[in-house]
Amino acid sequence: MVNKSLKVLIFILLVSMVSSCRSKSFDSKEALLVYLKDTDNGYHFQKSINGIDYSLTYRPTDLMVLQSTEDGPQTDNVAEFRKKYADYLYFNLGMSANGKELLSHNLGSRAEFGAMVNQLAFGMAEKVNLIGQQRDTLPLLDYVFPRTYGMGNRTNMLLVYERNPKAMQQDYILFTIRDLGFGTGEVSFKIDTKKIEYQPQLKF
């Protein structure tokens, strides 16, 4: 027969497990962004290889909802937009060379510069992949590459993937980016799917 203290311990463990699976809620966009950028929370990843700094940040559904309801979100609008954006995965990819945009790096000839511009603006679908644990690839639906003409400290882009229910039932998905010509080799980030399932939310 299980004694009382063991029953209490089991109850505490169960409560702890349930609590850990709940989505955290934040009162402001600023507080949510601080939470996302903490690498310990599993939404922000960083690597530095051969002088090139890479960062990948998962962008929760509610940040997309907020962007669509900035004029004053109503409860019915929030529910509508959450449903709209829930079918997709959003990631911010940042890359820099010596604290500058990739296009500010010494690329040599004008032809090499033009090739890099073309690669970043139109060819990233060939370079980035989001892959399920069982090697099923999630389609890249779109990406946004804002040109800042050397005024920023990194090259940033927003990547939009279709959310694959089968892949999301696995333990992790793998984001990879092929070498862009800087001698880094392929760079990868392992993302816990439970972090996306129980992603943080905003209190609208």
Score class of each variant (00 low, 15 high):
residue 1 M to D: 12
residue 4 K to I: 05
residue 4 K to T: 00
residue 9 L to Q: 14
residue 9 L to N: 13
residue 10 I to V: 12
residue 11 F to S: 15
residue 16 S to Y: 13
residue 17 M to D: 14
residue 18 V to H: 14
residue 19 S to M: 10
residue 19 S to A: 15
residue 22 R to M: 11
residue 22 R to G: 13
residue 24 K to A: 11
residue 25 S to K: 15
residue 28 S to T: 14
residue 29 K to W: 07
residue 32 L to D: 01
residue 34 V to Y: 15
residue 35 Y to T: 01
residue 35 Y to A: 01
residue 38 D to K: 10
residue 40 D to Y: 04
residue 41 N to D: 05
residue 41 N to Y: 03
residue 42 G to H: 03
residue 43 Y to E: 03
residue 47 K to V: 01
residue 48 S to L: 02
residue 49 I to L: 13
residue 50 N to W: 01
residue 50 N to I: 00
residue 54 Y to T: 04
residue 54 Y to A: 09
residue 61 T to H: 08
residue 62 D to I: 03
residue 62 D to N: 11
residue 65 V to A: 09
residue 65 V to S: 03
residue 68 S to E: 10
residue 70 E to G: 04
residue 70 E to L: 05
residue 73 P to R: 06
residue 73 P to A: 07
residue 77 N to W: 05
residue 77 N to I: 02
residue 78 V to A: 08
residue 78 V to L: 07
residue 81 F to I: 00
residue 84 K to M: 12
residue 84 K to Q: 11
residue 84 K to I: 00
residue 86 A to H: 14
residue 87 D to R: 15
residue 88 Y to L: 10
residue 88 Y to K: 11
residue 89 L to N: 04
residue 90 Y to A: 04
residue 92 N to R: 12
residue 96 S to W: 02
residue 102 L to W: 02
residue 105 H to Q: 09
residue 106 N to R: 02
residue 107 L to D: 02
residue 108 G to P: 07
residue 110 R to V: 01
residue 112 E to R: 08
residue 112 E to C: 10
residue 113 F to A: 05
residue 113 F to Y: 10
residue 116 M to Q: 13
residue 118 N to T: 05
residue 118 N to Y: 06
residue 118 N to G: 10
residue 120 L to I: 03
residue 120 L to T: 03
residue 121 A to Q: 14
residue 121 A to P: 08
residue 122 F to N: 13
residue 122 F to G: 07
residue 123 G to Y: 08
residue 124 M to S: 10
residue 124 M to E: 05
residue 125 A to Q: 15
residue 132 G to S: 13
residue 134 Q to I: 01
residue 136 D to Y: 12
residue 136 D to I: 01
residue 136 D to P: 08
residue 136 D to T: 10
residue 136 D to M: 11
residue 137 T to Y: 13
residue 141 L to N: 14
residue 141 L to M: 15
residue 143 Y to P: 11
residue 143 Y to S: 07
residue 144 V to T: 12
residue 146 P to I: 00
residue 147 R to S: 09
residue 150 G to W: 03
residue 151 M to H: 06
residue 151 M to V: 00
residue 152 G to S: 12
residue 152 G to I: 00
residue 153 N to C: 02
residue 153 N to S: 11
residue 154 R to W: 02
residue 154 R to M: 03
residue 155 T to L: 05
residue 156 N to M: 08
residue 157 M to V: 01
residue 158 L to K: 09
residue 158 L to V: 02
residue 158 L to Q: 06
residue 158 L to M: 13
residue 162 E to M: 08
residue 163 R to C: 06
residue 165 P to N: 11
residue 165 P to T: 00
residue 166 K to M: 05
residue 167 A to D: 06
residue 168 M to G: 05
residue 169 Q to N: 14
residue 172 Y to I: 00
residue 173 I to G: 03
residue 174 L to K: 12
residue 174 L to S: 10
residue 176 T to V: 08
residue 177 I to A: 05
residue 179 D to R: 06
residue 180 L to Y: 09
residue 181 G to K: 13
residue 183 G to I: 06
residue 184 T to V: 08
residue 184 T to C: 12
residue 185 G to K: 09
residue 186 E to W: 06
residue 186 E to T: 11
residue 186 E to K: 15
residue 188 S to G: 11
residue 189 F to K: 04
residue 192 D to H: 08
residue 192 D to R: 09
residue 192 D to I: 00
residue 197 E to H: 10
residue 199 Q to D: 11
residue 200 P to W: 02
residue 202 L to G: 03
residue 203 K to M: 07
